[in-house]
Design a protein around this nucleic acid. Sequence first.
DNA 1: CATGAGCGCTACAAATTATGTAGCACCCGG
DNA 2: CCGGGTGCTACATAATTTGTAGCGCTCATG
Lengths: 114, 114
Amino acid sequence: MAIPTPGQPVRGSRSGAPIMALFDLLGRRWGMGILWHLSQGPCSFRELQQRCETISPTILNRRLKELREALFIERCDKGYCLTPLGSDLQKLLVPLGAFSRTWAEVLPHEEASS
Amino acid sequence: MAIPTPGQPVRGSRSGAPIMALFDLLGRRWGMGILWHLSQGPCSFRELQQRCETISPTILNRRLKELREALFIERCDKGYCLTPLGSDLQKLLVPLGAFSRTWAEVLPHEEASS
DNA sequence: CATGAGCGCTACAAATTATGTAGCACCCGG
DNA sequence: CCGGGTGCTACATAATTTGTAGCGCTCATG
């Protein structure tokens, strides 16, 4: 499972359009979630695992490797943290948080129906 | 494979935080890519399949169902198109395009090495 | 030095998702 | 009736993710 790289063929673009490489990387399960949770501050592997609530260590470790290779995340004394580049990316994700709340209101609610 | 819904348990949040539901939905393979390609204008199922270059009809259809249920996409005379809500979401994705190009420059290039 | 608690990380089998190919049923123009 | 387009499904195979257990390491405490 090679890490998607701009310029190389990736899912969504044989020519490796950067946006498609990014989508491929972030579109892997937990990709965006890890960036999101890590933006709350640096933390250890196990702490991150708990922030994600239900991620398995196998996949956390794999995503961590990929995101490190992509230069979004790096090791630090506290465990893991975002790089400046990763932080830039995370900031672009923030508006999605606001959007998602609007979305949640618009969507037909599926309360535990009586 | 239930569609992630804010308020229901989703991957990344047992309590169904809207942002995690959104990440779960968009984080499925091709999720963001479909929105991206569809923003180029409404098109037919097969045309969309070609814009995505390498998507299988099985998964295109599944994502389409999910995204329609999430109110991001709807049917129209030309085939499929973004809803206003979906269009809002897609606009939030646009900055990622610019970011991805910066990223592509920063990343060590893996040219076809001699 | 033994114990316990934390760390990053890996193994492995089972379950879930995605891929690729083929092809259905439908409609339209020739 | 034939060719070409549409949306979409079936099915076997492959890839990815999950969940659980536990390794080897370090550090603080007794």
